[in-house]
Design a protein around this nucleic acid. Structure first.
Lengths: 342, 342
DNA sequence: TTGTACGCGTTATCAT
DNA sequence: ATGATAACGCGTACAA
């Protein structure tokens, strides 16, 4: 590997000049610049990134903590989001480090993982996902003055850049939609309010019911443990709903995998999705869009979200802290075949 | 950020000793070691990775080129594979850089992307995926003496570490299975032999037919362009099959997304999957496992494959070149509800 | 066992 | 416009 010294020598200039050719082209006379450039081309010189990073105290790298599920073939949550982030880094000349940790890891180990990442100045910033209401990772990063941006909000009194989707509004809209279709017994299957998105969705459900004047009935709500198998949980929950004397005619599901279970539950109970029980779920996956009937879903702009967090973070690293570094996006109710008039 | 100097000063030793405490603990007397360790703990010192990388000429980082599809919600191909790689890096104390490039990029730009990655010694090695029969990226990396490992084989006369699945055998087994179920008109929907996996699967189809004594009929084969929409291609192909006078009673599909189209095509033509037309496809996705009927699939050990390539590459970086750095894994035919006796 | 000094390849500052 | 020279922070032979 040729170094900047080699280039300087061959071009008959000092290494400072070579550096300037690369980093401050306007500071060097066109003639010498061309000569140096030619030598660079010939020798195939490329600045060593470790040296460059060391010298600039900057790595042009951000990390993304992406907790893969251990279960085989689970929808790897939000891979469109990952695509958005990856593409954006590529476009903005940033490198993306993908970091993971086992999902069933203890809170403490999880935090250690974040710490490791902040140590040694290996990355300029971190993207975090699946924010919790009381997110210890956010607290940690904030304490350590690490630049970060999040997919999702957080209840902590900390100001940081985030991108989120208005999950409450999304579910409210779903309730209205079902109400207008004539449904009066609308169930909700979701996840407990540990994660902020879970909370928002549940709140949307309650608010929605209030708005249309349906009384909240806690027998129509199931919040499945995040730890367990979502598909089983959804199925069991739905089967339970359909056993009672006044079963729901529609169900809103606050999670993609849960919906698979819910649909299974409906079919195993001898009902048909859409025709007998209306279903609305989150996210356009291959499953939801190509199931028969295709599932009516609340679409989140995942790719866009990935793009935006990356942009927000990179801006923050560049020292820009735009006023609008809280981005709340709207979802879209995509009507397919799983909801019927009643 | 405290430096190694700060620690040395506070501990009353030289910086060489501090370095040894970290990298060659046995070379330093327990007493001083403990003292230094305590200071390190107190000051929260962590070696700066850029400096460390520069000094060692090593980054403990590998890159993964992962061509995300631009289309929303398209098969994000093999995210289990990605999980395997990511987890393995985490476990082996390596960092993983995720790199992407637009799928519709020209061959030249694609290669430039690989070049960039090799420049500046930013990574110790590269994992490549979707190998082609005549893979220019492999040629490039080989020429540049870059360490790399691949998911998939390649026809080039280059020896490199790879992990692959025996796709030919997989499809042969599928043919046998259908034959034993009584099927004699077995169609194949796949992709053209640009990628090695496509070729292997197609070959397996032909070999399988030979083995059971069915004559190859090219009217029962469709190789969809990789560029287009797989779902549409599968659907059109299948609809075409079902229009001819002697339609197939079974179809093997050489790609996950294609199968969605094939199933659509069957249903739109008024037939029922399983009951009328048997279907075997690749990969256990949420769609294939939870469609009704659930699709009988050829399961690839994707997570395992991701784990193995990462291990292979990291070994190669460490200078180990094990004899068995060509790993061919078996698939598993997972029987569900989409194939019936005829 | 411990300390010194140099090298790693850049960037950046400051004279010239 | 260009050229020395000093950081940047760490690893490591080599000397003590």
């Amino acid at each position: 590997m040729p170094t900047i010294d080699d280039v300087a020598r061959k071009a008959g200039v000092s290494l400072g000049t070579v550096s300037n050719v690369l980093n401050n082209p306007e500071k060097v006379k066109p003639a010498t610049r061309d000569r140096v450039l030619k030598i660079i081309e010939e020798t195939g010189f490329h600045p060593n990134l470790s040296a460059r990073n060391l010298s600039r105290s900057k790595t042009d790298t951000i990390a993304l903590i992406y907790p893969f599920s251990q279960r085989r073939r689970t929808e790897h949550y939000y891979s469109d989001f990952l695509a958005g982030t990856t593409d954006t880094c590529f476009r903005l000349n940033y490198r993306l480090m993908l970091s993971s940790y086992p999902r069933d890891v203890s809170e403490k180990e999880k935090l250690r993982n974040y710490e490791e990442l902040t140590n040694g100045s290996a990355v300029d910033g971190i993207v975090i996902t699946r924010t919790e209401r009381n997110d210890s990772a956010i607290q940690l990063l904030s304490d350590r003055q690490q630049k970060f941006a999040a997919l999702g909000r957080c209840d902590l009194p900390i100001d940081f850049p985030w991108v989120d989707v208005d999950g409450a509004k999304a579910v409210r809209e779903a309730v209205h939609y079902l109400y207008n279709l004539g449904h009066r017994r609308i169930a909700y299957v979701g996840t407990p309010a540990l994660f902020t998105f879970s909370l928002h969705r549940s709140e949307g459900y309650r608010t929605g019911l209030e708005e249309v004047g349906i009384e909240f009935d806690e027998d129509l709500v199931i919040l499945a443990s995040v730890a367990g198998n979502e598909i089983e949980a959804g199925e069991n929950g739905m089967v339970g709903f359909l056993k009672v004397e006044a079963p729901p005619s529609a169900v809103i599901v606050g999670g993609g995998q849960l919906a698979i279970g819910v649909v299974n539950g409906i079919e195993k109970s001898g009902y048909r999705v859409g025709t007998d029980i209306s279903v609305i779920s989150f996210d356009d996956t291959d499953w939801s869009t190509h199931y028969s009937p295709p599932i009516t879903t609340i679409r989140q702009p995942l790719y866009e979200m990935g793009k935006l967090v990356a942009e927000l973070l990179i801006k923050s690293i560049a020292g820009e802290e735009p006023e609008d570094h809280h981005i709340l996006l709207n979802t879209e109710l995509v009507i397919r075949g799983s909801c019927k008039k009643v």
